[in-house]
Design a binder for these strands. Sequence first.
DNA 1: GCCGGCACGC
DNA 2: GACGTACGTGCCGGCC
Length: 874
Amino acid sequence: MNKLVLVDGNSIAYRAFFALPLLNNEKGVYTNAIYGFTTMLLKILEEEKPTHMLVAFDAGKTTFRHNTYKEYKGGRQKTPPELSEQLPVMRDLLKAFNIAHYEVENYEADDIIGTLAKIGEEEKWKVKIFSGDKDLLQLVSENVHVALTKKGISNVDTYDLKLVDEKYGITPNQIIDMKGLMGDSSDNIPGVTGVGEKTAIKLLKEFKSVEGLYDSIDQVKGKLKEKLETNKEEAFMSKKLATIETNAPVEIRFEDIVLVEPDYEKVVSLFKELEFSSLLDRFDSEEGECHENIEDLDLTIMNEIRDEILHSPSSVVVEVLEENYHDADILGISIVNKKGNFFIPIDIASKSEIFRQWAENESMEKWVFDAKRAVVALGWKNIILRGVSFDVQIASYIIDPSSNAHDLSDIAKRKKSISVQSDEFFYGKGKKRHIPDQSDLAQHLVRKASIINDVKADLEKELKDNKQYELFKELEMPLSIILGTMEMTGVAVDKDELREMGSQLGEKLEEMEKQIHSLAGMEFNINSPKQLGEVLFEKLNLPVIKKTKTGYSTSADVLEKLQDQHEIIEKILHYRQLGKLNSTYIEGLLKVIHKKTGKIHTIFNQALTQTGRLSSTEPNLQNIPIRLEEGRKIRHAFIPERENAVIFAADYSQIELRVLAHISKDENLIQAFNEDLDIHTKTAMDVFHVNKEEVDGQMRRTAKAVNFGIVYGISDYGLSQNLGITRKEGKEFIDRYLESFPGVKDYMENIVDEARAKGYVTTMLQRRRYLPEITSRNFNLRSFAERTAMNTPIQGSAADIIKKAMVDMAEEMETRNLKSQLLLQVHDELIFEVVEEELEIMKEIVPKIMENAVELAVPLKVDYSYGKTWYDAK
DNA sequence: GCCGGCACGC
DNA sequence: GACGTACGTGCCGGCC
């Protein structure tokens, strides 16, 4: 069966333009409307699979409708030039996709669509129309459906006869009567003054049409009748204007709009030019791969390792398929250098003494993608990879942390190197994952190494141009090796302690479950928000505070508000808290204890967060409970590996606010830290204009929340949620804070200006974050970008500082030949295992090195403590 | 296998 | 015309 898709090009472009922030590519060409338009096209191709397709555009300024009414579309704002300039590119894209586009002098896109839809319908084809304009609904029929954009652009509602009736209570051909009566301000169609959608529909239900209405005008009473009579002429004219012409002079035959395969090469090159890397991926993985002409690289499979191929520098790929690379299988190793392209099967490499010596030789330079992965994977095989001088993944992350270059193929595309299939595509994902045969594997790995070789110089230049080379070379590169060592070292855990806590928790949970069920008067799954919501708000009839997309909200802040209404609430909150401890922390941690080492080996992601912080996975050791005592007890299970050693934790006190004092140069804040005041009390004194003795608990809590807000860049809304106050009050607190710290206020204003001017903000050590949305006309997006501009230099500089401290600390421990080890980093604290004989020296050097990692306008302060478990290091 | 809701840390 | 409210990770239930 034939399926015809008709797209209202102008309407979709217009919607896309306003729905998306004003993106532009490197050359400064605006691309937001093109991007939105393209995602829509891809979605249509994928989901509709049309046999015929046409995109219609408006032509020229005037149409036949202007003969009827010369003010038609009058007073409409001129199409923004930022949008107009994008329209020709959309036509180019359509050509590349081999999708027909069409326009007719004196007619609008609607008329072309109407005409073709009618023909399609007569032929009994399925017809689907895409637009943002409700007028098109008049074309809906049994076989003609209209998809209207709702939120954003790719989100559509598809109207058939039933949905039109549901939404409007009228038939599609009555849409024009409705428009006739209510008018349309966007097209400057007058309609009947004082009649809106509601009245129009009411009238049409009774009188069927504009004609029918005026034939029986005497049945209408009062003011409405008067209005209808005075505007009779306008009503008929408006109906005429709103009517889509279904006999427009469209000189196009269906064979001209048969949909054929896109011209992949052209599409890919346009996407590259437009910098649509995410679409490039989609396009590639959906259809491009099999069409892209990949010429195999020449390579040698080494069944014996010869010294002369192990050259310096070499681009190296140590391929580990598992996402978790601890003790994982290595599939093979590829090396690309001046001597050629080589693939080394893993059993050859692991047995070769020549290979080991080369790998472990610091002076043999290696360029890689994801150094830590290679170092740790080889580390588990007792090969210590040294001399890694360039990590393409980290370089790419430093240049732009938003690029999320988790896959080398993305970088290859961006840097216009040779193409390589994404790992996901090459190996397959989920159940379909498989290891290809050796020759394909060799080709894939050699291509990857070759890309590393290709892009290295380019990335290095970019780092230098951005003044980020030092950050890369002196901070992040050494850090990746340090992190690798920490991961390999792992953290020892007391399994029995965890199990004991688990069984106690289990008992308690069972008991609580019974209590909750009896209070509810029925059995249900407390962990299901859906079931819980039904129990609380339907069975127990508690007041609904908040709803989510899918039903009632049962989040902690909602439950807290209901606490005094029913004794079940408190029990549910407690049940949730313990349930979380049991599933995530007890069971979760037990699951990831390594079979061979009996320790927990996390993986730090060094190239992920937008601010420069690390993250930790499998398990996440950066969110082990501490706030509530019950959870904090989990820390009892984290112990030193060696006898007579302790867990030693050192944390920066108020590092973000100290950084803020430094970069804002606010005198009040600087003075506060120079005098080592309690910063929340000091803030409360200034914000509430009271002296120290008058600051009560509530005031200090509020001040603390405000400081929290400043540090994390939350909005007045966020602060209000935090404190349970109104948004207005939240804003007041922020304003009063800024009055008290005028230097901070200046900083906040200046940094936003700077972000607008440059397009990005930087941290103390030149880390960058791009904020394209800072010029968005969308209030929410813009505000978010502005808060990010204020916050990222603070949080990011704090991240810089602790990273620097880690590098300095590693160096110090190396020169002193210490046996103690760094185990974890939790954003503002470092956790070590310290052996007894080094305790005194560590007490001295850890705070010293952390406090002197950088020099600020205020002192950095480090507190430390230690004990026989992580719990005791408090 | 994916998504939404929820909760933990800084 | 309004794709969402600091950053992350991970668990569960419910849906496909």
